[in-house]
Design a protein around this nucleic acid. Sequence first.
RNA 1: GCACCCGUAGCUCAGCUGGAUAGAGCGUCGGACUUCGAAUCCGCAGGUCGUAGGUUCGAAUCCUACCGGGUGCGCCA
Length: 586
Amino acid sequence: MLLERFLEARASAAVQAALELAEPTSALLRPTQDPRFGDFQLNAAMALGKQLGRPPRELAEKIAEKLRGEEFVASAEVAGPGFVNLTLDDAFLAKLVTDGLGDAEHLGVTPVDAPEKVIIDYSGPNIAKQMHVGHLRSTILGDAIARALEFRGHQVIRDNHLGDWGTQYGLLIVGMREFGDAKALEADPIVELERVYKLASERAKNDEDFAEAARRELKKLQDGDPENRALWKRFVDVTRRTIDEIYAELGVRFDLYLGESAYHDALAGVVRTLEERGIAREDEGAKAVFWGEVEGEVPAKLRKQKEPFLVQKRDGAYLYSTTDIATVLYRRDELGVDRALYVVDHRQALHFEQVFAVARLLGVTMELVHVGFGTVLGADGKPLKTRDASGAALTLAVLLRQAKERAAERIREGMAEGRLKVEEHEIPSLAKAVGIGAVKYADLMNNRTTDYRFDLDRMVSFTGNAGPYLQYVHARSASIFRKAGIDEASAVGPIRVTAPEEAKLVRRLVRFGDAVEKVATLYLPHILCEHLYDLASEFNAFYQACKVLDAEDEATKQSRLALVAATARQMRVGLGLLGIEAPERM
RNA sequence: GCACCCGUAGCUCAGCUGGAUAGAGCGUCGGACUUCGAAUCCGCAGGUCGUAGGUUCGAAUCCUACCGGGUGCGCCA
């Protein structure tokens, strides 16, 4: 069940009945910010008081009275100008958690009524370039959102829209012939490709013949010249080897790797269609959409825009705008998706608005969402540069390695202090789980929409609100079962709330489904991070205050074991949705 | 010129789409390990929510203006 949805529905019905309203109205249910006000508050009375011309507190009292009969309500009190403060019934909540134990996969969270086929486009690294920390966000966010959607019951297609096509390949081809080193390309492909690209693009700036040659080779490549095609294919293959290592490290996977090149053959047709429909027209030799003149539905913002949306260059080459339009059509016609998500830096917001607007003009009705995210900034507050000569390149591979190293150090400390019984050979996998988990959590805990400052120390920090804090709760839970010599799955309650810490923990556990639902509808994984952090805090408080194995009686022990099991499982599943491992010990 | 985003504790950030006395982490300082794991817990300190108006029972949140920072806008992706 989704608790908030359930409560909102029941409370709204109560409001309508209590006030004898003809139309249904929202109870304006919100979680309270202060436990003194109970668990949830209803704000409807104040809004309706104005509307109905009656004192809000009088309405609130009627609503409260109506709710007092509900089985999930412990108390309903009127407070302040007309709040109705709801305190939920402990036994009702405890039963929800106990019931959830029977559902190992979804923890009692019911799936959406109408599952959709959703394609999610994320990561999208460029061929011939190292993945750097800027790629982390799209990759991690996309993966977490995909998992949340799947958890809610949607069918998800993960697509890696590789940057494997475009003008840089002309440069790379002539560059490789001019400066390339076959041995280096084999040994460390991306380093060599980046070196060659840098030399070639510098040369092209001052050498018109060289630049011309690059354009010629690009044209040959795009026309299917076998030799250039083979070289290009090699660039793609060696890059794929490297990025796939990173994905394996991150535990990220894709169903499709349909890069830009996959749509090349469709581009001429797209432009032709746009012209035929009067959406695009020729101008100064190029083909473009002029938002002021096209007929049909166009967002007001674009209407006002002077600059056209270019779909073909004067020299006949296509742009990524054309590719993206072709991609939308492919996803509709060949994949039949209901929804397409683009997890891409928010600097491309205008680009996607334009792509989507063109798609609408072409009659595309599926939901198209640009899931934009903030830019990763360096310590100076400027977008993090990685290609620049100044300072060592901070690649994703380097970041992940450092995170793992620090985690390994930490594990060795624990072993030395005797807190941890870990075999030497377990260290690498454990360090990976903790190190990579810390990096992922540090990224995901930020609100997706805002820029954030990249700080390596913070990212591999293992204290406070950080990945390992959540993993630690899971490991502690697992440790209790190890010590008791029983299986987590055999702890089935029933849960009874006796201590205040148990009451708080239960109240957190029942809100898991709502958190995941928000991630899947708002595309904001940090909401789940926050939930799991709160869960961890409340578990730690419970752990501090309540004996589990040495509980005062057998029923309490069974209840608490079930509570520990529910926490462990929710933490494991929740971390799983974030793409973070939950080790049994750490 | 047009469009968009952001200003919240010393630092990094939440604040669930308008609710009550604005919350975390880090950092500082002080406590808690013979007791289910101290990567933990407890406590102290820290705020004109950029500024000024407006909307209303009620604003960090919505509107307007201004200040400050950033981004994107014909032939890159």
